[in-house]
């Protein structure tokens, strides 16, 4: 039990990027565009945040980390607009254009690293302005929950909580959310009610890029000391799995994200759990990915995803 309490902050630290990115994916898929480029967006976000932090810290700018996060969001939003353009205006196969962006992100980040830092990675930002762990006043005094969820976490974790609530509100309680969801279910019907499918989908995809950029920044800034080619290691796809397992619902994503966070934490703690200590480290590293498959298989029985997600929008089709 003590061990689980100990694991909580680390699990939440690893879960936050997944939750934030999956919330982005939620906007995109609910508007009807599948975004497999989330991984690429996270790479762009992680790279931009690390680079800006290194450069601004060296220049002695105050609050460099906040500028770094902002830059990550902006860069990733600009980046994902290629996908939005291809998917919405060019009738592109969304898997292909998403994959193209993933390849592009992998090449572009390292290419820019070589130009800026003369290496295959960014310089270390550890000496710069970095976040420290904080607790939330008042909330941390709630018995059990306060200790587990609101004590000694990185600010990204609290950002993830807040975003879950905001996204839930926007998706389910506002007119915009209703329109967004309708575009992902039956876009022709939305269009007949005067909703601009093109505009709504653009907003959905751009938001997914912004969130994934923040997610990438959260991952790199809280768990690593520099960005390199292996920084994201497929977590963008785990975020898509989080979205599926969370049944395209913000609260579901929160739960799914924490579960995947725990599965990654296990590799740090496996040596101190007597029952698991004899398992080879490779198998422990494999575990989050195996769990992802198991969870998807178990929980995707019913089709709960947006109906028109991934389909090319043809206004003349009824």
């Amino acid at each position: 039990m003590k061990l689980i309490v100990e694991m909580f902050p680390i699990a939440l630290m690893l879960a936050s990027p997944l939750i934030i990115t999956a919330l982005g994916g939620l906007f995109s898929e609910r508007s009807g565009v599948v975004n497999v480029a989330l991984d690429g967006c996270m790479q762009i976000g992680g790279f931009t945040s690390a680079t800006v932090l290194v450069l601004l810290s060296a220049a002695g700018v105050k609050n460099a980390i906040w500028w770094a996060i902002l830059a990550a969001i902006v860069a990733s939003t600009v980046f994902v607009s290629i996908h939005a353009f291809a998917a919405i205006h060019m009738r592109a196969d969304q898997t292909i254009s998403g994959t193209a962006l993933n390849v592009l992100a992998g090449g572009l980040t390292i290419y820019l690293c070589e130009i800026l830092f003369n290496a295959k990675s960014t310089a270390s930002f550890n000496n710069g302005d970095v976040f420290s762990r904080v607790s939330v006043p008042l909330l941390k005094d709630i018995p059990v929950i306060g200790k587990l969820f609101f004590t000694g976490n990185y600010p990204f974790t609290y950002m993830a909580y807040v975003l879950v609530v905001i996204v839930w509100f926007v998706i389910y309680k506002t007119a915009f959310g209703l329109r967004l969801r309708s575009c992902g279910e039956f876009p022709q019907a939305s269009a007949s009610m005067g909703v601009s499918v093109v505009k709504t989908r653009w907003i959905g995809v751009l938001l997914s890029g912004a969130f994934a950029g923040l997610g990438g920044a959260a991952l790199v800034l809280s768990t690593q000391t520099y960005f390199n080619v292996g920084s994201i290691h497929g977590l963008g796809f785990v975020a898509i799995a989080t979205l599926i397992f969370g049944k395209w619902n913000p609260w579901g994503i929160l739960g799914a994200g924490i579960l995947f966070g725990f599965s990654q934490t296990l590799s740090f703690y496996v040596s101190s759990i007597p029952m698991l200590a004899s398992i080879p480290s490779e198998l422990v590293n494999m575990f989050p990915y195996v769990l992802t498959i198991i969870v998807i298989v178990l929980f995707s029985g019913k089709q709960v995803g947006p109906k028109a997600s991934g389909e090319i929008y043809d206004p003349s089709k009824r």
Binding site: A86, S97, V103, L104, L108, E114
Partner: peptide, 17 residues
């Protein structure tokens, strides 16, 4: 990495054919 960038650009152009 420029090779990867060329590949990605080609893929994008094929996606928006």
């Amino acid at each position: 990495e420029i090779a990867q960038l060329i590949q990605a650009s080609i893929l994008i152009f094929i996606a928006i054919q």
